[in-house]
Write a protein that binds this DNA or RNA. Structure first.
Lengths: 145, 145
DNA sequence: TGCCGTGGTCGATTCGATCCATACGCACGA
DNA sequence: TCGTGCGTATGGATCGAATCGACCACGGCA
């Protein structure tokens, strides 16, 4: 992970379908050297995968919510992970400092679908209650971009 | 945006570097037909770009926080956007329902850098106070996956 | 019937995967 | 000190595969 690797990753972030020769021209390496480095980055797990950024509105996942999770007693992160893994609407989740035990980001087609998904989370015995904040308008979206 | 388009996007989501022929074999189209559809999806803005998923820890952005923003009086989303756009550590932000005016997701190298970034947000005159929740452990990460 | 959108085929070109020779850094021992 | 061997990284050449663009065929529709 030197400066060149970071340069390659930056280029791939902008366009994951860029050719090796193009990337090489920008970072000052030959195409084969670039390929070797990318292969190594993938093998090492630094690059987890190549994907597309899709307009969320088109995908039909226009409704998003941040949900604070409050649990009964003490729940291990492992248990929490198992509970949340079963809800596909959950995009991101993590245990956090502060009042809540975890914060969950959910994405669904509409508010109805969101409520259904939220109900699935609430159904877990360990979940005491939740506090939701539905996203009204997106101000900044720099995820993978 | 028919069923085939969704199939193509699903394939690309898993591997944005997949060949047209491979994708075509899965959705039942020839390679050139797949290319035409992908070109159209890009031109129409459905596909915003091709990117890589990088291990955040390797990228040196190991510390993440969810921050609730409370503003003085009423602040328009436009003003809020302008304020937040100047802080590069902000990954995502949106106005929300509920107590807080907005929720901001920040990512930084460590807690120190996070605090610095948070200070920049707090410096804005319209920001009354903030409530942060630092992520202890990531449970689910399905962003673009 | 003519037009438009969509898909298949084909050939020229480009790109990617793989091998080979080479250069640098470094430890080891004569 | 010098030479040798090893591991790592690079650049170039090669061959096969993928991509790109042009052309034509088919079906729905006014």
């Amino acid at each position: 992970m030197d400066r060149i690797d970071h340069g390659i990753i930056d280029r791939l972030r902008l366009n994951a379908r860029a050719g090796y020769a193009d990337i090489g021209a920008e970072v000052g390496l030959s195409a084969s050297a670039v390929k070797r480095r990318i292969d190594r980055l993938v093998a090492d797990g630094v690059i987890r995968g190549f994907t597309v950024q899709v307009d969320p509105a088109v995908e039909g996942l226009a409704t998003e919510a941040y949900v604070e999770l409050f649990c009964r007693g003490t729940v291990s992160p492992t248990d929490l992970k198992r509970i949340l893994a079963g809800v596909p609407e959950i995009v991101e989740a993590g245990t956090v400092t502060g009042e809540a035990d975890a914060i969950v980001i959910m994405r669904a087609r509409d508010v109805i679908a969101l409520e259904d998904a939220l109900e699935k989370v609430r159904a877990a015995a360990t979940v005491d209650h939740t506090r939701s904040a539905i996203v009204l308008s997106k101000l900044i979206t720099r995820t993978a971009g």
